[in-house]
């Protein structure tokens, strides 16, 4: 790790001001990802701005939905009664993430901005377009078991690792930010970018912008929502494949549905096409299987991750049939 200077900001405006002033500065919240990246030499920051003192850790519920402060901890949100009762997919996704120790420290903002777990990205001895643009992507021909089958490019096929982001994608959430240019609201669907030929650019965040809150709208599907995460060990592991589903059902009739996926795509993956296969129809084994086929229609599997194409369809069926009481 390289030496760096450190300052603790008292409020959001100061944090943004400090960040705008120092090139190469970064906010530090829980530090559970940032410090690993800095110790491993993957990222360097001359200046860290500690945002832990900011008054941004509250979770409030109103008629329009939830507002979760950008510094709320994963554990705090997962245990919040309104989240558990009315947005269960969010609580489940958080509880299926990391470990209790990490969840005690890690924040909403930090979680959304965590970097990929691609082994090449985190090894400074390897080439990687995301870390060193133009250096190449060894994952294309190399170890890609953990990599994406959707949304990839010839530059990068790394998955976004956040479970929270998948749940928020299914809930149509929005990210509130404050930057040198003022405050703005970014729908989560526009927050993450596909790698294209600039995999180093992961979000639509502008320099020195601070995540102040996440807004989760109330919606008829939110209450019947669930998260299914499959992984290579029982806990404390990122998703091989995950599914977030939110359903508005009348009997078996799907009035509305939202589906998002983790582990299979370069960003939290919403599939409007798969949703369309189910919306306005009865939930049956056949319609669910058809939605799965549509989901992976454009999949580009590689040698090590081909199984995900099959596994994600099975995971989707598992979750929907369970949620619809068909199993």
């Amino acid at each position: 790790m390289r030496s760096f200077s450190y300052a603790s900001a008292r409020d959001s405006a100061e944090a943004v001001r400090l960040a705008g002033r120092t090139p190469g500065a970064a906010f530090i919240a829980g530090g559970t990802d940032l410090l690993n990246l800095m110790k491993d030499g993957v990222q360097h920051h001359q200046h860290l701005i500690d945002v832990n003192k900011l008054d941004l850790a509250r979770v409030t519920e109103s008629a329009s939905g939830l507002r979760i402060g950008g510094l709320a901890r994963m554990r705090q949100v997962a245990e919040h009664h309104a989240v558990r009762a009315r947005f269960p997919v969010l609580a489940e996704a958080l509880l299926a993430s990391a470990s209790p120790q990490v969840r005690n420290m890690a924040t909403m903002g930090g979680n959304l901005l965590q970097r990929t777990r691609c082994g090449y990205f985190r090894d400074t001895g390897s080439a990687c377009n995301k870390r060193v643009p133009g250096s190449g992507c060894p994952a294309l021909q190399g170890w890609n078991r953990g990599h994406a089958v959707l949304g990839g490019s010839e530059s990068c096929i790394a998955t976004h690792p956040s479970d929270l982001a998948v749940a928020l994608t299914a809930l149509d959430a929005a990210v509130h930010v404050l930057g040198p240019g003022g405050a703005r609201r970014i729908p989560v669907g526009e927050f993450y970018r596909l790698p294209g030929d600039t995999p180093q650019v992961e979000t639509s965040l502008r320099p020195a912008e601070l995540i102040t809150a996440v807004e989760v709208p109330r919606h008829p599907t939110a209450r019947r929502s669930r998260y299914l995460k499959l992984r290579d060990r029982a806990t404390f592991e990122f998703a091989v494949v995950s599914v977030a589903a939110a359903l508005d059902l009348r009997g078996h009739f799907v009035r509305d549905i939202r589906l998002a996926f983790g582990g299979i795509a370069t960003k939290p993956w919403r599939s409007a096409e798969a949703e369309a296969e189910l919306r306005g129809k009865n939930l049956t084994v056949a319609t669910v299987e058809q939605a799965g086929r549509v989901l992976v229609r454009e999949a580009v599997p590689r040698q090590g991750n081909e199984f995900k194409v099959e596994l994600v369809q099975r995971a989707l069926a598992e979750l929907l049939l369970d949620l619809g009481g068909l199993r």
Partner: peptide, 27 residues
């Protein structure tokens, strides 16, 4: 679960850490 992964082109170990070299946890 446990396995060390070598990149066949570079010869590097791609999962040299306890977050990607999975050992069993209590669960």
């Amino acid at each position: 679960m446990e396995h060390t992964v070598y990149d066949r082109n570079s010869g590097r170990v791609v999962n040299p850490n306890l977050s990607t070299y999975l050992v069993p946890v209590c669960a």
